[in-house]
Design a protein around this nucleic acid. Sequence first.
RNA 1: GGUCGGUUGGCCGAGUGGCUAGGCAUCGGUCUGCAAAACCGGGUACGGCGGUUCGAAUCCGCCACCGACCUCCA
Length: 489
Amino acid sequence: MSNPLSIYNSLSRQKEVFEPLHPPFAGMYVCGPTVYSNAHLGHARPAITFDLLFRYLTHLGYQVRYVRNITDVGHLENDADEGEDKIVKTARLQNLEPMEVVQKYMNTFHRNMDQLNTLKPSIEPRASGHIIEQQELVRQLLRKGFAYEINGSVYFDVEKYNRKYKYGKLSGRILEDLMANTRELEGQDEKRNPFDFALWKKAAPGHLMKWPSDWSDGYPGWHLECSAMSIKYLGEVFDIHGGGMDLQFPHHECEIAQSTAALGKESVRYWVHNNMITINGQKMARSLGNFITLDQIFRGDHPLLEQAFSPMTVRFFILQAHYRSTLDFSNEALIAAGKGYQRLMKAVETLGNLKPSAASTVDIEDLSEKCALAMNDDLNTPILISHLFDGVKIINSVNDGTEKIDDKGIEALRKLFDDYVFKILGLRDETQDSKTDDLAEELMKIIIDLRGEARTRKDFTTSDRIRDELKKAGVTIKDTKDGVKWERG
RNA sequence: GGUCGGUUGGCCGAGUGGCUAGGCAUCGGUCUGCAAAACCGGGUACGGCGGUUCGAAUCCGCCACCGACCUCCA
C-alpha cells in the first residue's frame, strides 16, 4: 500500500490516514434500518457507501468484520410518554404481530440490498436479540453513576457526564446552548434535564413489545442497542462507525456518551457519515413523506418517476457523487447515470474481445495509479469513475484501431476493470441478464439473416423496415464492421 | 434563534492558488446505403460585491440564497 487510504473522520473534521487498531483486522459498525416500512432511495445511500468501504478495505487486504444492525425494537414516535413505538404502531395499523412487521420489512430490505448488489454484513445483529446486553450496559451506567432510575425508567445523566467528559464533541454542540434552546415539554418531569435520554423505558399498559428487567417491564432506549452490540461484536474500542449524517445528533452523540461513560474510554476511532439524497433540494425521508421506495424505482411505479430505473443504475447514480455530498434525485440525473453505466458495461464487453498488438500506445499503469489515488482520497468514486471512462476511451480506441495495446496491457486493463468496476464499485453487468435467452438468440439470428439478405439485394426499404420494427419492439440493430449486433433497449 | 454545510456550464457532479475532471445533453466531422455505436473536434462555468496575490472557482471579509441538525429519520 504505497499511498495509504485516508478517510474523513467526522470527529476531527478532517481526513485521516486509516490505520486499524489490530491489523490486518478492521472492524466496522454501521447503523442499519428500523424495519417498519419499505426501504427507500435514502436507505440505498449508506448501504452502498459502506458496502463500498467494506469492499475497498477487503481489496486492500484487510480482514474486515462488518456489523450492521437491524433495529426491530422500534423507537418512540416522539419524546413524550404518550409517543408510540413505530413498529407497534405499524403492527396495530396493519393488524399484525410486531415481529411480523419486522420480518416483512426486513425481508424487503434484504431483497432490495441484494438487488443493489451490496455484500451481506459479517454480522447483522438485531436489537431484540440483545436485550440482555443492553440491560447489562444500563446496570453498568447505573453503577458508575451516569444514570438514574425513576418510575421504572432509567435515564442517562447528560449533565453529570458533561462534567467529566465533554458532551457534544461529535456534533459540535455545547451543553449550555442545548439547555438554552431546548423547549420545555409538558408532563416530562421524569427526566432531570430535557436533554437526558432514555436507557430503559417502562412500558405503558397494553404496550406490545416489552421485556422484564430490574426496573420494569419495558424496552431499551433509542441509542442503546448500537453501543451494546458494537461493543459485543467489535470490542470496547473499534475502528469505524458509520451511518447517515442525520444520525450524528442525537443518536451518535448519545452513543459516544453511553460508551464512554460505561467504559471510561472512547469506543470509536473513525466516525464516517454519508450525506443525504435530496429531492427538489430537500432531504428524502420517511418522516417528510417525500420518499420513493426502492421497489417503486425499480418498477417505475411512482408519480415522480418517468420510467423505471434498474438497481445498477441507482447504484451507479449514487457512486457518481462523493458520499459526503448531497445528491439530488431527478429523472434526468437517473437517465444520465443509466446511460453512463450502459456505456461502461459495453466497454467491458469490448475489453473481453480486444486484440493485442506487438506494441502499446497507452499507459495502463498510470491509469491504475490514478484509480488507486482516487479511492485512497476518502473514497472519491466520482474521480475514480472519471478515470474509468478514460479507460473506456482507451478500450474503444483500441477497438477502432486508433490506439494499440500489447498483451500485458490488455491483461492489466482487464484486471483494473475487474477490480474497480466489479469488486470495488460493486457493479454487476445486468445488461447480460437479458442475453441468456436462447430462444431470443435463435429468433434474432433468423431475423438478422433475413435482413442481411435484403441488404445484399440493396432492398433497403425492407432492411430498414425490419430495423425500425425491431426498434419499436425494444431491440437495436447495429451494423458494425465485425458483423451485425443487437441489443435490448 | 444556535451549530454546521452548500451555491460550478442545459442537467448531474468533481476539483481547492496557475496544469482538459467525468457522465448525460447539444453542435460539427470521420465511418456507414442510411442509421446506431465508436472515434476526433467545438461551445457553454465557477451566487454577488470587495480584499490578499504576479495570478483565485480555489484564500480572507461582507451580503444574498439554499439545505442539514437542534423531535423519529439513512
